[in-house]
Design a protein around this nucleic acid. Structure first.
Lengths: 212, 212
DNA sequence: GGCTTTCCGTACAGGGTTGTATTGAAACGT
DNA sequence: ACGTTTCAATACAACCCTGTACGGAAAGCC
């Protein structure tokens, strides 16, 4: 092992390095904590570096938002467009919510916290939330639910997930436990029982995906 | 009308005046915004007043927390203890959530935001959340739901409400609209249909209570 | 090698917040 | 009335964060 985990040698940072560091502190400590001085300390450089890569602090914050848009916007809507049955559609949503590659829940949470006290951001986040709920509602309606039940079930499903992210700081619930609630969640969200075979397949596939 | 709404005459503040002002700014702008300088500006005095009533900023923050405990802690648990039927119990919960006298949702939201980046607070809020979910789960179990369905339904119900507070900045949904969803909500939360007579009575009573 | 571009360190100015100490004014009790 | 208690204004020290200006080192290009 030529280099240990501490590899602080390659000085010379890029703008992306600053953005990555800012994203991490945004997630960990909120938008008020992403200050140039703190980031510089964390990156072990001085603020002189920052002001070469960025115009100001607001420029960095804009970069964080575009990252959020690229990473988290639209994935739930896409996941539901190709769902053939009720069971597979709901499970496709569940999959998005545990797949770090397609959706970053902590970032979503951090941006939502940020938006709560920023008038300009609030509109953007609310639009995204509305779009997600509308997509789920349309999915419910496509599978036989009348209005307003489809809309309310969509809201209940999405809101539950949002709170799940908001209230559990770290994963204090193991994946195996969460999968144990699969039937109960499905019943609460849809009012129907899940196909046992589909549930079995989903469990196996999810457990395998969370292993490596 | 001898005095208009602006009645800033009675100078001489008490500690409670500072706490009330701090609570309001906490709710409006978050814990980072409750700074002594800003509060003093808002109260139209100087910080000299604050440091007579309080030892430090942390002392004020402690006061805010004890206020939250007195105002919001335990009310949901109490609302469910005396519920005889499933319908009345769920509706009793709904009543708590719209009754400003028994529960302050915005304060709850602000404290939860605060707790997300404060390790000491996080434990306290999590305990309260767990107690609320446990009380609802116990209520579901008392009315014929098996485990883990009772627990999951309790979580879905509570988490949905928490997100409802978190995602709607002001009341962008009128009370009449919310009541229109009553049957759909009840069905999603319980899997059963609400008694039409009980629903009618609840609607009338809630509308009347929100008028004066 | 020399020159330019890229990146970072240093220093300084400006603004903001917390606390403390001290003085001053207004209300209260007797 | 008069002194005491209650409350608020002022001034000052210490710390933190942003933004700018400028200078220097290191890498890349020819």
């Amino acid at each position: 092992m030529p280099q240990a985990q501490t590899a602080p040698k390659p000085h010379r940072l890029s703008a992306e390095d600053w953005i990555a560091c800012a994203l991490q502190t945004l997630i960990e400590s909120g938008i008020e904590a992403v200050q140039i001085t703190a980031l510089a300390r964390r990156l072990d450089v001085t603020r002189g570096s920052f002001y070469w890569h960025f115009e100001s602090r607001e420029a960095l914050l804009d970069a964080l938002l575009t990252h959020w848009r690229r990473q988290n916007t639209g994935v739930m809507v896409e996941a539901l467009t190709g769902a053939e049955s009720l069971d597979t559609g709901i499970l496709a949503l569940f999959s998005v919510w545990v797949d770090d590659a397609r959706f970053d829940p902590k970032l979503d949470q951090a941006v939502r916290d940020w938006a709560r006290h920023s008038d300009t951001l609030h509109g953007a986040v609310k639009s995204e939330d509305d779009a997600r709920v509308a997509a789920i509602a349309e999915f419910y309606a496509r599978h036989g639910y009348e209005q307003p039940e489809a809309f309310i079930r969509a809201r209940v499903l999405y809101y539950t997930q949002i709170s799940y992210y908001a209230l559990s700081k770290e994963q204090d619930e193991e994946m195996t436990d969460r999968l144990g609630y699969l039937e109960a969640y499905f019943r609460a969200f849809t009012g129907r029982d899940i196909d046992p075979e589909i549930a079995r397949a989903y469990r196996a596939e999810t457990l395998e995906a969370s292993k490596p």
